[in-house]
Design a protein around this nucleic acid. Structure first.
Length: 798
RNA sequence: GCCGUUGUGGCGGAACAGGCAGACGCAAGGGACUUAAAAUCCCUCGGUGGAGACACCGUAUCGGUUCGAGCCCGAUCAACGGCACCA
C-alpha cells in the first residue's frame, strides 16, 4: 500500500530538485529546435499574485512543459514590469523609497511563483527598473528621437488632479483616471510623443500574417481605425483675405449636398481671421467654453449640438462654386482629420442634427431615404441625385469618380486617415525611466550621449508630485542642471519620465540575453530565439501593450537591431477569473481568492489543475470552492492508481484516443476538456479495478504539465527515473478506432435504437442490424437510407 | 450609433466538419464501509406522463433549409466586451 497523497512533502521535494538543479535553465543550442513561450510579466504590486495571474501563466506553463518533452529547447521567461504609480503611491504613503518597495514586492512574487512550481527561466528574470535594463529602454527612445519619431508638442492633455499626472488617452477612458477614478481635467502641456501613427498602416497590414485570435485582430484594427477618403480644400474668404481651409471626408460623393462647413473650436483659422470676424467676442466665448468642458462631457454627455455661426467668413464649395456659411462647433475635433468638416446634413446624423437646430438647408443627394425624418447614411447602393455629373451613379462609383475629378482640377486629394493618435510618451512622476534629453538654450533638444546611458534616476528625499504638473525630478537642481553634450554650455535635463508602457515594449527581447551589456539583444541570441512563438495574456492589453510593443519591434527591425518586423507569431488571451459571486474580484467586494491559501490547503498541483479545469480558458469563469475539492479528489484518484497496477485487463480505455485528445486540446487552449478526458480514462480504470503500468505511465505523462509535482513523484515510484527526461506519449492512428462501433439508429430523424457493427460495415449489413434492433422497421415502407460509416444510420420510412 | 462575442440542466461547462444533446466536474438523493462522522467506493440525477418497457417535450424566441439542426440561413430578444460626435 502506497502512502496517501501528500502534496506538501512532494511539492517541496520536486521544487528543490527543479530549482536547485536548475532543470529549466536553457542556453542557445543551434541545431536544437526552440520554442519561445511568453506570458505577460507581472506588475509586482504589494498584494502579491492573484488567481488571475495563475490562470494566465498556467496555460503557457502546460505548453512549455509539454514542449520540453517533445524535444524543444524552451525559453519560458519571467520578469517584472516594476515602474509605475501604485508602487510610487504606496512608497509615498509609507515613506519608503520605491526601490525598497519594488525589491520587496519582487521578492514576494518570486517566492510565490516558485511555490506554484512554474518551470520559468527564473535565472533570466528581468526588472524594468534595473538601470542595466532601462539603459536600453532609454537607448531605444534615443534612436527614435534621433530619427524624428520622438517629438515634443504642446497639446491638451488629460490631467488627473489627484494623481497629479498627465494621462494617455487610453488611461482616461470615460473621462476618469484609470487608476484612481477621479475626473480628468484638460491642461495645456508641452509633452513628448512617439510617432506611432507613422507605423499605423504597417501595424494594420502586419496583422494579416499573424496567428492571433480573431477578436484580437479585430480589436487592434478598430483601434488603428483606418479610413479612406479625401482632403478637399474649401477656400474661406474674410474681406479680401482667403484661407485654404482643408476638410477631411470619407464621403466625397456627397459634396453636392454640402450646405455649410464646421471647424473645431481650436482651429487656427479662427485666430488668423480674429480681426475680420464680426462676432469674434461670441466665437471666443464659445472657444473658451469648449476648452473648459472636460473631454468626457464634450464627447459623451453633450449630445445636444451646439455651435456659433462665424459671421464675416464665407466658404466656397470647390465643386459647385456655391457660397456657404462657416460654423464653429465642438462636435468637430481638432485631433482627427483636419479639424474641419464639410457638413452634409442629408446624409450624416450629426450634421443633420446641427442643421435642424440652426435651421440650415438640407439637400438630398442619394435617393432611398426619407430626409424629412432623419439623415440617410447610405454606404452602398442608392443612386446619386442633385449631384451634377454624378447623377445616376452608385455611391461606390461616385466616390471614385469624385476623387478623380478633384485631383484633376486640383481641389482635393485621396487621403487615408487613422483614428490612432500619436503615443503621449511622458509622465510627470518620479518612478519611471528618465527621458535622456537635455534642453540647451542654444542647441535646443539634445540627446544624452549613448555612452552616458543609463541616465540614472537621482535619489530623492521627497518624490511627491508637484501641483503644477511638473515632475518631482525638477526639484533635483544638481541633477537638472548639466552641460549641453553638444556645446558644453549650461543646460537643463528633461524632467519627465517615461510612461509605464515603455519598459514592457521590448522586454521579450531582453529575455534572450538578459545580461548583454553591448546591445538591446545579443545578435547571436536573437538569431536563435527569434520571434516569440506563442504569447498569452489578457484582452485588456491587446490594444495598448501589444500594439505598442509591435511598434517598438518594428522600429528596431527598421534600424537593424532585430531580424523580424513582428515580435509575436501567435497571441491568445485567457478570460477573467471572477469571484464565487460571479463578480469581478476586488478588495472592496471581499471576493478575492488568494492562491497561497489554496496551496496551503490542497497544494500547488490542485490549484493548477483547478484553474485549468474551471471552464473555457478564453472565457470568464467564477471561482468555486467545491470545484477545487473536486480536483483534489481527482488527483487523489490518480495517486491511488499506484495501488491498482496489475498486468491484466483489456482495451476498455482507448489510450491512443486519450493521447490524441489530451495533446490536441492542450495545443488549442482547451485545458478543461483535456483534463476531462483524463478523468474519463481514470474512471475507466476504476471500473475495471486495475491499470496496467504502461497505461498509468502514459496517463501521468499526459497529466505532468498540469500537475508536475505529483506526477514526477509517481513516475519516480514506478520507474525510478525523472519524468521530464522522457518523451511525450505518441500513438498509432490505427489504434484510434475500435473494430466494432456502436452507432445510433434513427427513423425519420428520431433515435430509435443502437446497433454495434464493424467500423467498415456496408449499408446492407447495418440496415439488417437496424431491423434486428428495431423490429417495427420490417413492417414499414423504407423510402431512403442514409448511412454514414461509423457514425449513424437514418432510415426514412412510412 | 458602429464592430465583435455569447445565450445549452440546480451550477461550471461538453458536443469533430450538419450525425446519440447534456462528456467531465460540482451540488443533490440513495447505497456500501464505520459504534458514529469524515474520507473513500458504488448507483441515480433535463422536464412531463407511466409501476415498467416506453412515449412526448427540450439547446433564448419565431420562422426556414435538410433524411437529420445546439451547430447553417432569415428575423427578433437579452447579456457581455471593444470603439465612439472619428467626419
Amino acid at each position: 500500500m502506497t502512502k496517501a497523497y501528500d502534496p506538501k512533502s512532494i511539492e517541496k521535494k520536486w521544487q528543490s530538485y527543479w530549482y536547485g538543479q536548475k532543470v529549466f535553465e536553457v542556453k542557445e543550442e543551434p541545431g536544437k529546435k526552440k520554442f519561445y513561450g511568453l506570458i505577460e510579466f507581472p506588475y509586482p504590486s504589494g498584494a502579491g499574485i492573484h488567481v488571475g495571474h495563475i490562470r494566465a501563466y498556467t496555460g503557457m506553463e502546460v505548453i512549455a512543459r509539454k514542449r520540453r518533452m517533445e524535444g524543444y529547447n524552451v525559453l519560458f521567461p519571467i520578469g517584472y514590469d516594476a515602474f509605475g504609480l501604485p508602487t510610487e503611491n504606496y512608497a509615498m504613503a509609507t515613506k519608503q523609497h520605491p526601490r525598497i518597495v519594488t525589491d520587496k514586492n519582487i521578492k514576494h512574487f518570486d517566492e510565490q511563483l516558485h511555490k506554484v512550481g512554474y518551470s520559468f527561466n527564473f535565472e533570466r528574470a528581468v526588472d524594468t527598473t534595473d538601470p542595466d535594463y532601462y539603459r536600453w529602454t532609454q537607448w531605444i527612445f534615443l534612436q527614435m528621437f534621433k530619427r524624428g519619431l520622438a517629438y515634443k508638442s504642446k497639446t491638451f492633455v488629460n490631467f488627473c488632479p489627484k494623481c497629479k499626472v498627465v494621462l494617455a488617452n487610453e488611461e482616461s477612458q470615460g473621462g476618469v483616471c484609470d487608476r484612481c477614478g477621479s475626473e480628468v481635467e484638460q491642461k495645456v502641456k508641452d509633452v513628448w510623443f512617439l510617432k506611432i501613427r507613422e507605423y499605423a498602416d504597417r501595424l494594420l497590414t502586419g496583422l494579416d500574417g499573424l496567428d492571433f485570435l480573431d477578436k484580437i485582430k479585430v480589436e487592434q484594427a478598430n483601434w488603428i481605425g483606418k479610413s479612406r477618403g479625401a482632403q478637399v480644400t474649401f477656400p474661406v474668404t474674410c474681406g479680401k483675405e482667403t484661407y485654404p481651409m482643408v476638410v477631411y471626408t470619407t464621403r466625397p460623393d456627397t459634396i453636392f449636398g454640402v450646405t455649410f462647413v464646421v471647424v473645431a473650436p481650436e482651429h487656427p483659422m479662427l485666430e488668423k481671421f480674429a480681426d475680420g470676424i464680426e462676432n469674434f467676442a461670441e466665437v471666443a466665448d464659445y472657444q473658451q467654453k469648449a476648452k473648459l468642458k472636460k473631454e468626457f462631457e464634450r464627447v459623451h454627455l453633450n449630445k445636444e449640438k451646439s455651435g456659433v455661426l462665424v459671421k464675416g467668413l464665407t466658404a466656397k464649395n470647390p465643386i459647385t462654386g456655391k457660397d456657404i456659411p462657416v460654423f464653429v462647433a465642438d462636435y468637430v475635433m481638432m485631433d482627427y482629420g483636419t479639424g474641419a468638416i464639410m457638413a452634409v446634413p442629408a446624409h450624416d446624423t450629426r450634421d443633420y442634427e446641427f442643421a435642424k437646430k440652426f435651421g440650415l438647408p438640407i439637400i438630398e443627394v442619394i435617393e432611398g431615404g426619407d430626409i424629412e425624418k432623419e439623415a440617410y447614411v447610405a454606404k452602398e447602393g442608392g443612386k446619386m441625385i442633385n449631384s451634377g455629373f454624378l447623377n445616376g451613379m452608385e455611391v461606390k462609383d461616385a466616390i471614385a469618380t469624385m476623387i478623380e475629378h478633384m485631383e484633376k482640377i486640383g481641389v482635393g486629394v485621396a487621403k487615408t486617415d487613422y483614428k490612432m493618435k500619436d503615443w503621449a510618451f511622458n509622465r510627470q512622476r518620479y518612478w519611471g525611466e528618465p527621458i535622456p534629453v537635455v534642453n540647451c538654450p542654444d542647441c535646443g533638444q539634445v540627446a544624452v550621449p549613448e555612452e552616458e546611458l543609463p541616465l540614472r534616476l537621482p535619489d530623492l528625499e521627497d518624490f511627491s508630485p508637484t501641483d503644477d504638473a511638473t515632475s518631482p525630478l525638477s526639484k533635483v537642481t544638481d541633477w537638472v542642471n548639466c552641460k549641453c553634450p553638444k556645446c558644453g554650455k549650461p543646460a537643463k535635463r528633461e524632467t519627465d519620465t517615461m510612461p509605464q508602457w515603455a519598459g514592457s515594449s521590448w522586454y521579450f527581447l531582453r529575455y534572450m540575453s538578459p545580461k548583454c551589456d553591448t546591445a538591446v539583444v545579443d545578435p547571436e541570441a536573437y538569431k536563435y530565439w527569434n520571434q516569440v512563438d506563442w504569447y498569452n495574456g489578457g484582452m485588456e492589453h491587446v490594444t495598448r501593450h501589444v500594439i505598442y510593443s509591435r511598434f517598438w519591434n518594428m522600429f528596431l527591425y527598421d534600424i537593424g537591431v532585430v531580424g523580424e518586423p513582428e515580435p509575436y507569431k501567435k497571441r491568445t488571451a485567457q478570460g477573467l477569473i471572477l469571484g464565487t459571486d460571479g463578480e469581478k474580484m476586488s478588495k472592496s467586494r471581499g471576493n478575492v481568492v488568494n492562491p497561497d491559501d489554496v496551496i496551503a490547503e490542497y497544494g500547488a498541483d490542485v490549484l493548477r489543475t483547478f484553474i485549468l479545469f474551471i471552464g473555457d480558458y478564453e472565457k470568464p469563469a467564477p471561482w468555486s470552492v467545491e470545484g477545487v475539492r473536486g480536483c483534489w479528489r481527482f488527483l487523489n484518484r490518480v495517486w491511488n492508481l499506484l495501488d491498482m497496477v496489475k498486468e491484466v485487463g483489456g482495451g476498455d480505455v482507448n489510450m491512443a484516443a486519450v493521447i490524441k485528445k489530451t495533446s490536441e486540446d492542450y495545443e488549442a487552449n482547451k485545458y478543461n476538456t483535456a483534463i476531462a478526458c483524463l478523468m474519463t480514462a481514470i474512471n475507466g480504470f476504476y471500473s475495471r479495478g486495475s491499470v496496467k503500468k504502461e497505461e498509468l505511465i502514459t496517463i501521468i505523462k499526459l497529466l505532468y504539465p498540469v500537475a508536475p509535482h505529483m506526477t514526477s513523484e509517481m513516475y519516480e515510484i514506478l520507474t525510478g527515473g525523472k519524468i521530464e527526461q522522457t518523451a511525450w506519449p505518441t500513438y498509432d492512428e490505427k489504434d484510434l478506432v475500435a473494430d466494432e462501433v456502436e452507432i445510433p439508429v434513427q427513423v425519420n430523424g428520431k433515435l430509435k435504437a443502437k446497433i454495434t457493427v464493424g467500423k467498415d460495415a456496408e449499408e446492407a449489413e447495418a440496415l439488417e442490424a437496424a431491423k434486428e434492433a428495431f423490429g417495427q422497421l420490417r413492417e414499414m415502407n423504407i423510402v431512403k437510407v442514409i448511412y454514414v460509416k461509423g457514425r449513424i444510420i437514418n432510415i426514412v420510412a412510412r
